[in-house]
């Protein structure tokens, strides 16, 4: 259950930078943190498990309702839009109100990135599952992107659960592993990651250490 330390951020978009050897590297720019620790859960608290609750993106107090305000005020920081929990093996060494920043990452390191993928709406099996579809010609009529057969006959006389079919695609929680950190800019709270990251621009992402 225990996870690794991470930070919340927003995906700003993609660009390219030139590496030290001159090659062009496609990068995703993420504005991450600083994320204050708003709650510490451990064996000694009533939660009976170890976790850190971190906040991201300050909001004015008029946007926070009373129960939320009471909870967030305990850390003695401002109010935050997003609160997320990170389960850890041990929370020793973390203090309430301590800021987690992009400093925890170093260029060259591999990280995990979690986000919500772009919603694609209702899609057929070809786009959603990569089916090949049916023939484009040779007498195929009105069935070019259909799934084809979806089961057998008298036995089992049903379609198995989980059969891949058309439906809503995207909008899922997606985690990418082994994403390389190209650059870290603590002054601007930016992380540059090689390649793509799940989700749209301005989407919330979590960047976590790999171990």
């Amino acid at each position: 259950m225990a996870d690794t330390l991470g930070i919340l951020g927003r995906k700003l978009g993609m660009t390219r930078v030139f590496g030290s050897d001159g090659t062009a590297i496609p990068v995703t720019v993420i504005a991450a943190g600083p994320c204050p620790v708003l709650q510490i859960k451990s064996d000694t608290t009533k939660d009976t498990y170890s976790a850190l609750q971190i906040g991201f993106e300050q909001i004015p107090d008029r946007k926070v309702n009373k129960p939320e305000r009471g909870h967030q005020a305990k850390a003695g920081k401002d109010f935050y839009r997003f609160l997320r929990e990170i389960r850890l093996e041990s929370v020793d060494g973390y203090e309430l109100g301590q800021d987690l920043t992009v400093d925890m990452f170093t260029p060259g390191e591999k990280v995990k990135v979690t986000g919500t993928s772009k919603g694609k709406g209702t899609q057929g099996p070809m786009k959603r599952w990569g089916f090949s579809g049916l023939g484009a010609s040779h007498g195929h009529e009105k069935k070019h992107r259909a799934p084809g057969g979806i089961g057998q006959c008298a036995y089992p006389s049903k379609v198995f659960k989980g059969k891949r079919m058309a439906g809503v695609m995207g909008g899922d929680r997606v985690t990418c592993i082994n994403v390389e950190v190209v650059d870290v800019r603590p002054a601007d709270n930016l992380i540059l990651l090689r390649g793509q990251v799940p989700g749209p621009k301005n989407g919330l992402v979590m960047v976590r250490k790999q171990q």
Binding site: L12, R16, F18, V29, D188, L190, L192
Partner: peptide, 12 residues
């Protein structure tokens, strides 16, 4: 977008 502009300006 400003952060990306800034990064690109450095590369140019």
């Amino acid at each position: 977008m400003n952060a990306i502009r800034k990064i690109e300006a450095e590369q140019m």
